[in-house]
């Protein structure tokens, strides 16, 4: 019980500290912008630890962060194998194939207005559907290994990327297109020099949304069948064994992989669309 009380005291203290920082003179500084969420996150973690210990919660309900960290450190080779299987082989290859396919389709769609008007409503509609449901079918077709996961990811990322690229390619103003015309520019000159660069903010929007979808697709597809390696496989098998520390360790890996994936795409976006008002800062 004292540990639980300590948890709430800690909470109150940290919250008071954050209020002081947030309303203090240094609130706008970079340090405060990083420090306040860090304090908040660490406090939650500490409370979690204290409450689990204080109430003596069994591991099958909620393992303490220290146990998860221990398990994480002890299982690095397994976690790495799972990461390679699910993220590198499944998610990443599917992501690249899906995005390239979407890009190719977007160019076709862009050249034929009829196709654009027909495919765009269909594409937006499909992009809103729970495509992860195709996983059992694709697992049946492409087997248990990563190929089927990549296929699920391809299907999941294709439509959001397609819709965003196509919307981006429509982004130019009439004046910009007229200007190209006064220079007697060819279709491809207009495409490479004007329309594709102008579309980049949209393209990256699609790529960012899809980076998260890719991981979800690769993990959930493993729930429908996988070899004895992979993050989704490990999660479902460990849940069955009530080894929740392992499940949490995999979730930590998923969180790191997800934010790193997103972070890399966002970093490239900053480099490519430095000129866009949202990036100039």
């Amino acid at each position: 019980m004292p540990l639980v009380i300590a948890a709430f005291v800690l909470w109150a203290a940290a919250w008071w500290l954050n209020i002081r920082i947030a309303n203090g003179p240094a609130a706008g500084s970079q340090a405060a912008k990083l420090g306040v969420p860090a304090i908040f996150g660490l406090t939650l973690l500490a409370m979690w630890e204290l409450i689990v210990r204080g109430l003596d919660l069994p591991m099958v309900i909620l393992p303490a962060p220290s146990m998860i960290a221990e398990r994480f450190a002890a299982s690095l080779p397994i976690l790495w194998q799972d990461f390679v299987q699910t993220v590198v082989k499944g998610a990443l290859s599917g992501y690249v194939i899906g995005c390239l396919a979407a890009f190719g389709t977007a160019i076709l769609v862009d050249r034929w207005d009829f196709l654009r008007r027909g495919l765009m409503p269909v594409g937006s509609f499909v992009a809103a559907l729970p495509i992860v449901g195709t996983a059992p079918i694709l697992v049946m077709w492409y087997g248990f290994d990563w190929q089927s996961k990549a296929a699920v990811v391809v299907v999941m990322v294709f439509f959001p990327v397609l819709v965003n690229i196509t919307a981006g390619l429509q982004e130019t103003t009439q004046m910009q297109r007229d200007q190209m015309k006064t220079w007697a520019a060819s279709y491809w000159q207009g495409f490479w020099k004007l329309r594709l660069p102008a579309a980049m903010p949209f393209v990256f929007n699609g790529l960012k949304i899809s980076s998260t979808l890719a991981l979800i697709g690769a993990i959930v597809a493993e729930f429908f069948g996988s070899p004895i390696v992979g993050m989704g496989f490990r999660i479902s098998i460990s849940v069955g064994q009530l080894a929740l520390d392992m499940v949490w360790a995999e979730i930590v890996v998923a969180a790191i992989a997800g934010s790193a994936f997103y972070g890399i795409v966002a970093f490239i976006e900053r480099k490519v669309t430095f000129w866009h008002p949202s990036q100039r800062g």
Binding site: Q176, P197, A198, M200, W275
Partner: peptide, 13 residues
Amino acid sequence: YGYVFQAAGLYPW
């Protein structure tokens, strides 16, 4: 001919 529009229309990139 060269054509100048009302807005400068320079590419920000």
